[in-house]
């Protein structure tokens, strides 16, 4: 940027800064009409509905399908677990063991209650 170019730009800026157009009556009327109209008809942001918000949160209908499939599969596994699941569970947590903590005393308590 030569001094001559810089001078030209500075002169152009200085001249452009002098542009201060008067506000026309028409523009003033339009702006104040907008202001009055906005008081009468304020723009209210619509409150987001719960269901669309939920759907957006989980990712839409494809996610709903996936959730439904997972739910049905879970119920099915609970009702009729495949053998492999039982085996896997046993390997993981061991075979279920029942311990009867009251086996020796239950008769005693039962008798006591019956004898009054």
């Amino acid at each position: 940027m030569t001094k001559s170019d810089s001078d030209m730009i500075d002169a152009l800026f200085a001249q452009a800064r002098t542009q201060s157009p008067a506000v026309s009556d028409d523009l003033m009327v339009r702006v104040l009409a907008d202001a009055a109209d906005m008081l009468v008809h304020p723009v209210v942001a619509p409150k987001p509905a719960l269901w669309p918000t939920f759907m957006e949160l989980i990712g839409g209908w494809p996610s709903v399908g996936g959730l439904a499939m997972a739910g049905v599969a879970g119920i099915w596994v609970g009702v009729a677990p495949p053998a492999s699941v039982t085996t896997w569970a046993a390997d993981l947590i061991g075979s279920p063991v029942s311990i009867d903590l009251l086996s020796d005393t239950s008769d005693y308590f039962a008798e006591g209650l019956l004898d009054g």
Binding site: A16, R17, Q19, S20, P21, A22, V23, L27, M28, V31, L32, A35, A36, L39
Partner: peptide, 22 residues
């Protein structure tokens, strides 16, 4: 209060118009 809007408009609109014009 529309009177407040009138005073505010008279105050800021010339500057906004000048900026946009430039």
């Amino acid at each position: 209060d529309m009177d407040a809007a009138r005073v505010l408009t008279a105050r800021v609109l010339p500057r906004v118009l000048a900026q946009a014009t430039r």
